[in-house]
């Protein structure tokens, strides 16, 4: 069964997303909304991983040797300035979509397994991950015209 591999992938992706939210928060601390909301969302990712502990206990956490282009790359550096913020947010957006898609994959497996406990976790976490993406996109839309047209 390959599900444990995907559980590991998801757990690692949530960890990378949490770290990335924190990195972006610190890198753009002069934008108070970005700073605070990114920290709030990082905690959400932490909470997702905590809820996941019991799932990993039941199914195990697998690794596989196949070439893997799917692992989530943590954001470790931030850019500066208005355009820098825009690009960092876009990186973050891509990462949330990666996590979101992984939740969807795990959900499909949970449906096949009829694992009600896992389904409850997946539904709630996937909804939050989706909202994280919505927030980033909302902020990108706000920042884009100013950053691309008039920022100094």
């Amino acid at each position: 069964m390959m599900l444990p591999v995907y559980l590991g992938l998801l757990d690692g992706a949530e960890a990378a997303l949490a770290a990335s939210f924190r990195r972006i928060a610190e890198g753009h601390g002069d934008e108070p909304d970005v700073f605070h909301i990114c920290h709030t969302l990082a905690k959400q990712c932490d909470a997702h991983r905590e809820r996941f502990v019991s799932v990993i206990e039941r199914y195990g956490r697998g690794e596989d040797d196949a070439p893997d282009r799917l692992h989530a790359e943590e954001i470790t550096e931030t850019r500066s300035g208005a355009v820098g913020l825009l690009r960092d947010l876009q990186d973050l957006y891509v990462l949330t979509k990666m996590v979101d898609a992984t939740w969807v994959v795990v959900k499909q497996a949970a449906l096949g397994l009829r694992d009600e406990e896992l389904l409850v976790i997946v539904d709630e976490c996937e909804r939050q991950t989706n909202l994280q993406g919505e927030w980033i996109m909302t902020r990108i839309k706000q920042a884009a015209p100013q950053a691309l047209l008039v920022a100094r």
Binding site: T40, L131, E134, W135
Partner: peptide, 8 residues
């Protein structure tokens, strides 16, 4: 969304 302000 009331927690983050993300637009619906």
């Amino acid at each position: 969304d009331l927690l983050t302000g993300a637009s619906v």
